[in-house]
């Protein structure tokens, strides 16, 4: 059986891989959407934090023997603290200004982080082993899937769901959303809004680092691993609607799938298809698929 002249098993295989990539996109764009939605900051350093998460896992393993499972908690924590420091020292001063300033600042932070890591570890990067428990492959019938990639999908989907639930369905989330609508009023209720904002930024950064740890065993841990990804992730967020959490998750997964199909149909276009879709979406729905006009 064939679809568009391509055998069905090949299509299914590519869709599965697209789901894996889509999971990374979803996880990364989730963090971006949280930061933009609640702080109004266009966090261009997101790719760098993703990279730092992967390096934190690598360094933890090399220097202290921290295994993958602990790295999943410790690396996001460490990078999240770095995010908190950056928010306290710099970003804080830019609230209420043109979003361009935040974008420039975080872009600068990304360049500095990449430069330091390149100086320390070189551009070809480091290898991080797949954790013992998740080695091997499963035969899905139409393709052989490494167990680790399956785990990535599961882990990222559950993190996305949890984050969505926290922000959209809990009291904490309601307070957060209220604070972004009217910070002064929320503060009047005795809630420490600046602290909440700082922690939100830290949490968004930690999500990026977590994606980095998840990616470490499948891609080369290199200083530039984030810079190529962050642009795609921005496109995903724009397509989903800036600041929309559901939009980020859904469009992340969907674009992963579409990109996967492009890789079979016309591979040369695989790195621009996301941007073509972004352009089309912006023409018909300037606020994104799930954004509020």
């Amino acid at each position: 059986m064939t679809v568009f002249g391509i055998p069905l098993p090949a299509i299914l295989g590519q869709l599965t891989l697209g789901l894996v990539n889509g999971s990374f996109y979803a996880l990364l764009s989730l963090g971006l959407a949280v930061i933009f939605g609640l702080l109004g900051i266009v966090n261009f350093a997101h790719g760098a934090f993703y990279m730092l998460g992967a390096f934190a896992a690598y360094l933890g393993l090399q220097a202290f023997g921290v295994n993958y499972w602990f790295a999943l908690i410790l690396a996001p924590l460490a990078v999240g603290i770095l995010g908190v420091i950056i928010e306290r020292l710099f970003l804080r001063r830019l609230y209420g200004q043109d979003p361009l300033y935040g974008l420039l600042l975080t872009f600068g932070v990304a360049l500095i982080a990449e430069g330091i890591m390149r100086d320390q570890f070189g551009s070809s990067g480091k290898s991080y082993p797949v954790p013992g428990l998740l080695r091997g492959v499963v035969d899905l019938g139409f393709m052989v899937l490494p167990i680790y990639r399956g785990w990535v999908v599961l882990a990222s989907l559950s993190i996305c769901a949890t984050t969505w639930f926290l922000i959209e369905r809990t009291r904490l989330g309601a307070t957060l959303r209220a604070a972004t609508e009217n910070a002064r009023l929320v503060q009047a209720f005795g809630i420490n809004v600046p602290l909440m904002v700082t922690l939100t930024y830290g949490a968004g950064v930690a999500l990026a680092a977590l994606a980095g740890v998840l990616a470490a065993p499948v891609v080369q841990v290199s200083p530039l691993m984030g810079s190529s990804l962050v642009i795609v992730v921005f496109a995903v967020v724009v397509i989903g609607g800036m600041g929309s959490i559901v939009g980020a998750i859904v469009s992340g997964l969907a674009l992963g799938l579409i990109e996967g199909l492009t890789k079979v149909i016309y591979p040369e276009a695989s790195n621009i298809v996301v941007f073509v879709i972004m352009a089309v979406v912006l023409i018909f729905r300037p606020a994104g698929l799930f954004g509020r006009e």
Partner: peptide, 8 residues
């Protein structure tokens, strides 16, 4: 600069 080669 492709990072994911699995499809290919």
């Amino acid at each position: 600069g492709t990072t994911d080669y699995s499809s290919f």
